[in-house]
Design a protein around this nucleic acid. Structure first.
Lengths: 219, 219
DNA sequence: TCAATTCTTGACCATGTGGTCAGTTTTGGC
DNA sequence: GCCAAAACTGACCACATGGTCAAGAATTGA
């Protein structure tokens, strides 16, 4: 499932392309909001402005549609922070990490929530991915963090907990958007809010881990 | 809904008490896993080892059962960190905050996930609570944090983002348990793991916010 | 032009849903 | 032992679910 993920289109007629796009967008919303079981093809079809039969014609089944959405999201995920090495500057890498995770929450909130909903439900479709590919990803980053700590470039904190800290605190702004908006009294979070939060998180994490150059990497 | 929350039992016959307890426990699991729509009374009844009719006899309706679970969870929530003042030691208060949130994730993982699922779905039942009671709670804590910052006891970080940071990073270990277990390769998280994570988070947050006495408040 | 492919869709099906109800059994206080 | 209140539960209902299918409409390439 996580192997053939390099594609990004696949052509197909212009009609197919248009309709699939509409279906995927609608499905992402509905699955994110109600979970796999709670989502209904009827609602997805309505939001895509197509008859239900048409959704099944393009996607085959509810399960296939769901899996396809998960794969698309994992693809976006994998495209992030592909290459870091122990030679890089810890402050820059961690800043970039926080920033790109934050942008993921901003650009793909429905996808983030879809992922969260899948994990909440015990990750029935993603267990393989978690125990395989993603685990590798984490381990290799953790090794780099550890080397930084050995060289005295940051405190010797457990790298895995650090990665979870960054994941959770950034993903929060997609997954718990309703809570954030309710409590802050905002209607929505603007780019400036996100920028402010990014700086706050970068500052606390870098300083909290004793990283050398805590400049927030503004650009 | 968030008003009359002081009760904690309500008697009723011993039979009622026993059955309601079983139903609530089963329902919390099922709602947490599948969300409000995705959960079925049939499955809840099976897990409670009762006929479906009996569940409805005690709970009235799916909606009432769900709301009751949310209220119970909000009750636990409200019992946390009721009183802090600007006179208290920031390090102690923040440590206790992180610790008790972490214990909430440990003691009531299903409840945490239920709450998360409700928020993910746009908080249809909790909007009032978020915009009212919980917002007040946050504002009053934020005021204390700000005073600490004014007195130079900690860096002048935005208190609301700080509260969200603590919420998200602790709640993560309940909500994303499946992800944490998959990536770390563990079967479950033990008390010692949780203690280690608590210390890590306390350390990073206190140091990251420039709080005075960063001792992890071991006890 | 015309046939082949792709697309569209309403009717239909078995199954599961939340919920009602009436009739029965069990319980607990006197 | 009595009896009202509480507890129990299978049969049942209207409706929604994911999915199938066949027949027609639109599009395509030669």
């Amino acid at each position: 499932m996580a192997k053939a993920m390099q594609y990004s289109e696949q052509e197909g007629g212009a009609i197919r392309q248009r309709n699939e796009k509409a279906i995927l967008a609608a499905a992402e919303r509905v699955f994110a909001r109600h979970g796999y079981r709670g989502a209904s093809l009827q609602e997805i079809a309505e939001q895509a402005e197509l008859p239900k039969s048409n959704v099944l014609y393009y996607m085959g089944s509810k399960r296939k549609l769901y899996v396809r959405l998960l794969e698309r999201m994992m693809g976006r995920w994998n495209a992030m922070l592909d290459d870091i090495s122990a030679e890089d500057d810890p402050a820059e890498v961690l800043s970039a990490f926080i920033r790109s995770k934050m942008q993921m929450s901003r650009r793909h909130p429905e996808g983030s929530r879809l992922f969260a909903s899948e994990i909440l439900g015990g990750a029935p479709f993603l267990q393989e991915y978690l125990r395989g590919e993603l685990r590798e990803w984490v381990q290799s980053r953790a090794a780099v963090f550890r080397e930084w700590a050995d060289r005295g470039l940051m405190d010797p904190v457990d790298p895995v907990w650090l990665i979870f800290l960054i994941w959770s605190s950034t993903q929060h702004y997609a997954d718990f958007e309703a809570q954030v908006l309710g409590i802050t009294g905002r209607e929505s979070l603007g780019d400036d809010d996100l920028e402010e939060i990014t700086r706050f998180l970068t500052r606390v994490v870098l300083k909290g881990c004793g990283v050398r150059h805590p400049e927030p990497a503004v650009e």
